[in-house]
Amino acid sequence: MVRQLPTVLVTGASSGIGATYADRFARRGHDLVLVARDQTRLEELASRLRAETGVKIDVVRADLTDSADLARVETRLRDDDSIGVLINNAGVSAPGGFANGDLDVMDRLIRLNVTAVTRLAGAVVPRFLARGDGAIINIASVLGLAPEISLGAYGPSKAYVLALSQSLQAELGGRGVYVQAVLPAATRTEIWAKSGRDVNTLKGVMEVDELVDAALAGFDRREAVTIPPLPDAGQWEKFNAARQAMLPNFANEHAAERYRTGNPGNSIAAQ
């Protein structure tokens, strides 16, 4: 008996990375649930992929910064037993940093890049655990590892997505649920124009097809973290190992010696 492939739910599916993921999974034979704000573009993509691949595709028009729309997608993830892969791709950037940033714009960014990602993952995890399998792909960014590049709340939001993915994988990986964080660098998508930047002025911009194909190679290998533009995987491994090496020291009950020596006002040093 041929096992039915799981349905894949993709957020931000109307263009760019999300649309390319939809294309690739459709060509692998997966049915799809496509979620985005642009109903027309979703329908056009769905019609093309149905004609080219024959898979079943549902279109869900939703603005994930709207609590009612987000709740509808959460309900679909919670109740639809056919969905076995969630791709948290929807995200937004914003121009400028904090010195001249618009707090309302940053708030919307956080609701989409952080809150929606968290709630959608949280909605689907109990069902994945109950059946003993499932996969979540979270689209983060290399900027989550580069706080020196100041783009307001965008980099920090993607650092959260990376940390969330690692935490979920640590908690759930041994129970049949696979979580992958994908960290693109600059990729040729509409996010640049929407944030007021011309992608053609940037160097080292990866084409979206190449980015998604690389991310799927990592998915097939069951990588916890996939960084498509990074030539030397050992650099990430060393970085992650250095982070893990610090963990036992965080349990010390006293401050490190460098914070106590030569400070007569410190109560620990005075004892």
Rank of each mutant, 00 (worst) to 15 (best):
P126H: 10
Y178Q: 13
P147G: 03
M246F: 12
N200C: 01
R131A: 06
F239L: 15
M246Q: 13
G234R: 14
R175L: 11
K194W: 09
A159I: 06
T201V: 03
L216A: 02
V179T: 08
L162D: 07
L202S: 03
L112N: 05
G173I: 10
S141W: 04
A130M: 00
S150E: 15
Q180I: 06
G152Y: 09
R131I: 02
G218C: 08
F250V: 10
D213N: 10
A181D: 08
R119T: 02
V199D: 06
R243Y: 15
M206D: 12
Q180M: 09
L202F: 15
G204D: 08
Q166P: 00
A163Y: 10
L202I: 11
I110M: 13
V225L: 11
G152P: 03
P229H: 01
N138G: 03
Y160H: 13
D213Q: 12
V142T: 15
W192S: 04
D220K: 02
E223L: 06
I191Y: 07
V182I: 12
L216I: 12
G173M: 07
E223K: 12
E148Y: 11
L162G: 07
P126Y: 03
A242C: 05
Q166C: 13
E190V: 04
A241K: 13
L112S: 05
T118A: 14
V117I: 11
A224C: 00
P126A: 06
A116Y: 03
V208D: 09
F250N: 08
D133Q: 14
G134L: 01
R175S: 13
A224L: 08
G174D: 04
G173P: 12
E190I: 01
W192N: 00
R243P: 00
R222G: 02
P231S: 10
R175E: 11
V199I: 12
E237A: 15
A214V: 00
L183R: 02
R243S: 12
I149H: 11
L216H: 06
D232G: 03
G132N: 10
G144E: 07
L145N: 08
V208Y: 07
I149S: 08
I136Y: 00
A116G: 07
D198C: 09
Y154C: 07
Q180D: 02
V182L: 02
G234W: 06
L216G: 03
A233G: 12
A233V: 12
A233E: 14
L120W: 01
W192L: 03
A153M: 14
A193K: 12
L112A: 05
